[in-house]
């Protein structure tokens, strides 16, 4: 599979993501700068990494979502290509309309960086097939605006359709997200957005590798 990582000024977990994808797939991903208007047909997985695109000065992800590369990404996603947005990447995908809902300030109003527990709420997506349904995994979070919010209808709809794929478990919800939602997919199931950082838990040096199975599944390689 050929993978690409989207680069926008202010993103800062791009290097973490590139390192994780390289270690798991054996091949470094290509990078796509914000001004590019097309994403090559042979790319099978596009990742929007975390950080503070444009400083998050307007609203997290709002400026990034209006850059040319996001229009290209939207078209690419509509054609069925897998897309992962992590942290700021999730916020950008939501702002770009690729995923429903919104990410508000953490309930504590503070940035939080700690390890949480995630429940795999839907193990049948192409991102979570390496886990078992209901499995509890470890994963770090590091964000200021990860409080997932959606209106009642949307919330019911994503719950009913199994679009909630990760939930904060064992009382570790770090941000006040509705229904403990940590990660969701779009209705078609090819776009994943999540606040936690699986790319920071993929090897012994990270103190665990619970995040590895996610990328392995998305990349269709052995974990």
């Amino acid at each position: 599979m050929k993978t690409a990582v989207v680069l926008l000024p202010g993103l800062n977990r791009d290097r973490d993501m590139i390192a994780a994808l390289t270690k798991i797939s054996g091949t470094p991903p290509v990078t796509i700068w914000q001004t590019e208007t097309e994403i090559a047909d042979d790319i099978d997985l596009v990742v929007v990494p975390g950080g503070f695109s444009y400083g998050d000065y307007l609203r997290c992800g709002a400026i990034a979502a209006r850059m040319p590369v996001l229009r290209a990404l939207k078209e690419k996603a509509e054609r069925g290509t897998r897309v992962i947005g992590v942290c700021n990447g999730f916020q950008i995908l939501v702002e770009a309309g690729l995923l429903p809902g919104a990410l508000m300030r953490n309930a504590s109003l503070k940035f939080v960086c700690r390890e949480v527990k995630l429940e795999v709420a839907n193990a049948s997506t192409s991102f979570t097939s390496g886990y078992t349904q209901g499995q509890i995994i470890r994963c770090p979070v590091a964000h200021h605006d990860g409080n997932y919010v959606a209106d009642e209808t949307t919330l019911k709809s994503i719950e009913d359709k199994g679009q909630v794929v990760f939930r904060y478990a064992e009382g570790t919800n770090p941000n006040g997200s509705m229904n403990d939602i940590a990660g969701i997919v779009n209705e078609a199931g090819n776009v994943l957005g999540m606040m936690p950082h699986p790319e920071n838990l993929i090897e012994a040096a990270h103190g665990g590798d619970d995040g590895r199975a996610l990328f392995a599944a998305a990349l269709e390689v052995a974990a």
Partner: peptide, 11 residues
């Protein structure tokens, strides 16, 4: 220190 990103860069 939980208000500081202690993990970024993955190292």
């Amino acid at each position: 220190w939980e208000q500081y990103d202690t993990l970024i860069q993955g190292n």
